[in-house]
């Protein structure tokens, strides 16, 4: 790989009979992992809804503390990144590593933009004493005491989502290196597809987080 030569997979690993079998197994593995991601975030969503039913006023106040314009901007950014990622999968399935490379670059750029916006949001909240812990919390900043609970959910859920974006950036870097080496072909594109699935799940979670946090 490091020689810059094309090093494409044409043979399946020793325990598979065919490339198709290996591909399908890999894809199913990624899907199962996505199921675990949904279960993990799902538990948080369940907690969110339970407390929202209990403390509706706090949730309304909490939502008004967040800037929905930044949230909406980030939503569009993530949707764009999902689009380019889907297109990168299409490209690599057609064996066009160059086009796929360009699309993954755009996806990665979107991921960075998302994280930069999040950084400004977080630092603003911490500055105003709205981080619910570490002694930062300022009880005077809110009217309903349980708004602290809302901010907890905000930081835990978007924080965990942000960690997934960062992991995604790492996966993109790995993909970019392999795309540059021209490793994928019509017969072998499992990694591109797998990272794509991961990225879309991250997007789906944000699709729910946006209205639940910013538009309450």
């Amino acid at each position: 790989m490091s020689t810059g030569k094309v090093d494409r997979r044409v043979e399946p690993s020793h325990h598979f009979d065919s490339m198709i079998q290996e591909h399908e197994a890999g894809k199913q593995g990624v899907w199962l992992f996505m199921a675990t991601e949904l279960m993990m975030f799902g538990a948080l969503f369940a907690g969110y809804f339970i407390y929202r039913m209990k403390y509706y006023d706090a949730w309304v106040e909490g939502g008004s503390l967040l800037d929905w314009k930044l949230g909406a901007f980030n939503t569009i950014v993530l949707l764009l990144s999902s689009f380019t990622m889907a297109q990168a999968v299409t490209d690599s399935m057609q064996g066009n590593n160059k086009k796929a490379f360009r699309n993954v670059v755009i996806t990665t750029a979107c991921a960075f933009i998302f994280m930069i916006v999040k950084y400004f949001e977080y630092s603003g909240k911490i500055h105003h004493g709205l981080f619910p812990g570490l002694g930062v919390w300022n009880p005077e900043a809110v009217e309903v005491a349980e708004t602290k609970l809302f901010m907890t959910f905000y930081f835990v859920m978007t924080g965990l989502h942000g960690i997934h974006i960062l992991i995604g950036i790492g996966l993109m870097a790995w993909l970019l290196k392999r795309l540059k080496n021209d490793e994928f072909s019509k017969d072998y594109y499992t990694s591109v597809e797998g990272v794509g699935l991961y990225w879309h799940i991250v997007d789906i979670i944000w699709i729910f987080l946006f209205p639940l946090m910013y538009l309450i």
Binding site: Q28, W31, M34, A35, G42, A43, A46, F49, I50
Partner: peptide, 21 residues
């Protein structure tokens, strides 16, 4: 099979939510 995997995770999350609620 892959659709089932996705749907079943959603189903089990709903279960967690409904019974806790």
């Amino acid at each position: 099979m892959n659709r089932t995997i996705m749907l079943s995770s959603i189903a089990f999350v709903s279960l967690l939510f409904v019974i806790s609620a």
